[in-house]
């Protein structure tokens, strides 16, 4: 069980939205995690220096928050196989599908992109089905 947190989740959403807001208005770009990661991993790191700074904030601020304002939730043990398989499929699938939750579900829906709406519906449904199969058919409780 996790607690239902509509207010903090909506406030967090607004901050995420502000990041996307800035990405559009200041940079003229979609703030998409999988795409930015692929660019940073690519050969043109010189051109991607600004993206590396984005990741610095993305990685650093939650850590600072976790040791100052609010402690993190308890990190329960996770099956390493699920993390390896999950990570690989997310890495491959988001490149094939040109985006993940940030690029499609937040930025893409905000621009009413038909591709992003289709992508979001697809990965939401496949995630729900996956959780149903793992938790309720195979009984693996992650």
């Amino acid at each position: 069980m996790t607690e239902f947190t509509p207010i903090s989740s909506a406030l967090g959403g607004i901050l995420i939205g502000l990041s996307a807001f800035g990405g559009f208005l200041l940079f003229g770009r979609v703030i998409g995690m999988s795409g930015m990661m692929a660019k940073v991993l690519g050969h043109d790191l010189g051109k991607s220096a600004w993206r590396a700074f984005f990741f610095l904030g993305l990685i650093g601020i939650p850590w600072i928050l976790s040791i100052t304002i609010s402690p993190p939730h308890d990190a329960q043990p996770f099956n390493p196989l699920a993390l390896i398989l999950g990570g690989f499929l997310v890495g491959y699938g988001t490149r094939l599908g040109s985006g993940c939750t940030s690029g499609h579900a937040i930025c893409g829906i905000s621009r009413l992109s038909k591709r992003s709406i289709v992508a979001t519906c697809t990965f939401m449904v496949s995630a729900v089905v996956t959780v149903f199969v793992t938790r309720h058919i195979f009984g693996v409780m992650q």
Partner: peptide, 10 residues
């Protein structure tokens, strides 16, 4: 791609 991503996310 989105289908595969959803499975990994789930």
């Amino acid at each position: 791609g989105s289908l595969i991503f959803g499975v990994g996310w789930g």
